[in-house]
């Protein structure tokens, strides 16, 4: 039996589109449309997708920053929407923390580092000033910052250091789950590795679970145990990271991997071609009928534009695509990414 810390069941978030003087609702933006996943204790789940796929909405729902239209979120088996206010404050909020994408805006510019890291402690615990002070110094050390930096303001730090502060703040309450919303994409290349290593070390040390929101596939492969690929409010493919990256099933996953793969000029001379998708992701206001990806899919058939594909299990992976409806096709299409290997 696996130890599931958080389970999302059929999450939906529709935003009304209103028009006119009376704010009449003329349609719904289906930002998230029926998403389910589980996060195991001590493991990382990544939600991957392009902007508009709905991944941030999911993160916000988990952090209770956004109310869902329907669906439930179970934390250690308990539905958090049934929690009372005090239960949320005692049992959920302190145990689920977050690190945001932009370390330049995620901190109040008028607070010192000391107060920024202490805030979760001040709000959620009844510790004395002395206890808080020593806890702040302790975490600061863990994320690799010097104790004499506690009295600085955020703007006095570089991006990487700020992200360390953000991690420290998330760690202050010893949470079980941390939502990492694009934790490194705002950072410089050489700093990203520092932060990713730090996050991994902390995960091992404290048996933390991570929900990572990301668009960079290489980052995701490095960080995650399981991966969910999102397209237009749906999860199109879900599986163990290793399997999913070595044997992508959904045409969208394959295109994404191909687009993100490092190809050198000579690889191209050798005939390695990238899968270039045509067009752009349609608006979630009027998602295409049938499979939502069919408008851009290279393997689309008539069926794809009519019927919504079911989610099928192929080994450990779950994929939402008509290609896998017929059992005989399964083995034929289960090949690795098309892009070739690149230099060392």
């Amino acid at each position: 039996m696996t130890d599931v810390i958080l389970e999302a069941r059929d999450l939906k978030k529709y935003y009304p589109v209103t028009k006119g003087l009376l704010q009449r609702t003329i349609g719904w933006v289906r930002a998230v449309d029926g998403i389910s996943f589980t996060i195991e204790r001590g493991k990382t789940l990544s939600l991957v997708g392009e902007s508009g796929a709905g991944k941030t909405t999911v993160a916000k729902a988990v952090l209770l920053l956004e109310k869902l239209t329907s669906g439930s979120i179970l934390f250690e088996g308990k539905d958090i929407y049934r929690f009372s206010k005090s239960q949320l404050k005692m049992e959920y909020r302190p145990r689920v923390q977050s690190v945001q994408q932009n370390p330049w805006s995620s901190m109040n510019p008028r607070m010192r580092v000391r107060d920024i890291i202490a805030e979760p402690l001040v709000v959620n615990t009844k510790r004395t000033k002395e206890e808080i002070r020593s806890r702040v110094l302790e975490i600061l050390d863990q994320v690799g910052l010097a104790p004499n930096q506690v009295d600085y303001y955020p703007h006095e730090f570089s991006g990487g250091q700020r992200q360390r502060i953000a991690v420290a703040r998330a760690l202050a309450l010893n949470p079980d789950l941390i939502v990492l919303d694009e934790p490194v994409s705002a950072l410089d290349v050489s700093i990203r590795a520092q932060i990713m290593n730090l996050l991994k070390d902390l995960q091992d040390q404290y048996n933390l679970s991570y929900l990572v929101i990301a668009h960079n596939l290489a980052t995701v492969r490095f960080m995650s145990h399981t991966v969910a690929i999102m397209y237009l409010g749906e999860i199109v493919e879900f599986g163990e990271a290793e399997e999913l990256f070595t044997r992508p099933l959904h045409p969208y996953t394959r295109a994404l991997i191909s687009a993100s793969m490092l190809t050198l000029p000579e690889d191209e001379d050798k005939g390695v071609e990238k899968i270039i998708l045509s067009g752009e992701m349609p608006s979630p206001l009027n998602p295409p009928p049938g499979c939502r990806f069919h408008t851009r899919c290279v393997e689309a058939t008539d069926k794809c534009s009519k019927d919504v594909p079911e989610v099928r299990e192929i080994g450990q992976q779950r994929v939402k695509c008509h290609l896998y409806a017929d059992p005989s096709v399964r083995s034929a299409v289960s090949k690795g990414p098309d892009a070739g290997p690149a230099g060392k």
Binding site: V189, R192, N197, F222, S260, L262, A342
Partner: peptide
Amino acid sequence: LIHSVPRLDRKDDRLYSIEGQ
């Protein structure tokens, strides 16, 4: 720099990182 970027075509357990700024 090249080694500190995670790779899509293989699994890394740890990234090479340049210390400092």
